[in-house]
């Protein structure tokens, strides 16, 4: 499952990145390395963009980008 499949409040852990090149580098720079916990905090109109809580800060990604991030579901809370 990908980050885009998580709904508001759900938590996951990064498994892998599908992205290549510059996008992969950027996501790694933000700390999206395997094993990193991530949580969906806000979802915009129509599901994109959404804001994710990651290593102490909030980042917004569009749906196409969130689909590049493979995660496993961990649970939910807000």
């Amino acid at each position: 499952m990908t980050l885009a499949d998580l709904t508001r409040g759900q938590r996951g852990r990064v498994k892998d990145l599908r992205a290549h090149g510059l996008l992969r580098q950027r996501l790694l720079d933000l700390g999206l390395v395997p094993g990193t916990p991530i949580q969906v905090k806000f979802v915009g109109r129509g599901g994109s963009p959404a804001a994710y809580y990651l290593r102490g800060s909030l980042f917004a990604l569009r749906r196409e980008t969130a689909e590049q991030i493979l995660v496993e579901l961990e649970g939910a809370s807000l």
């Binding site: 933000l30 800060s57 980042f59 569009r62 196409e64």
Partner: peptide
């Protein structure tokens, strides 16, 4: 194709 977009929402 649109390129990717990452936006930080600082406190």
């Amino acid at each position: 194709e649109p390129s990717f977009f990452i936006l930080e929402l600082p406190p």
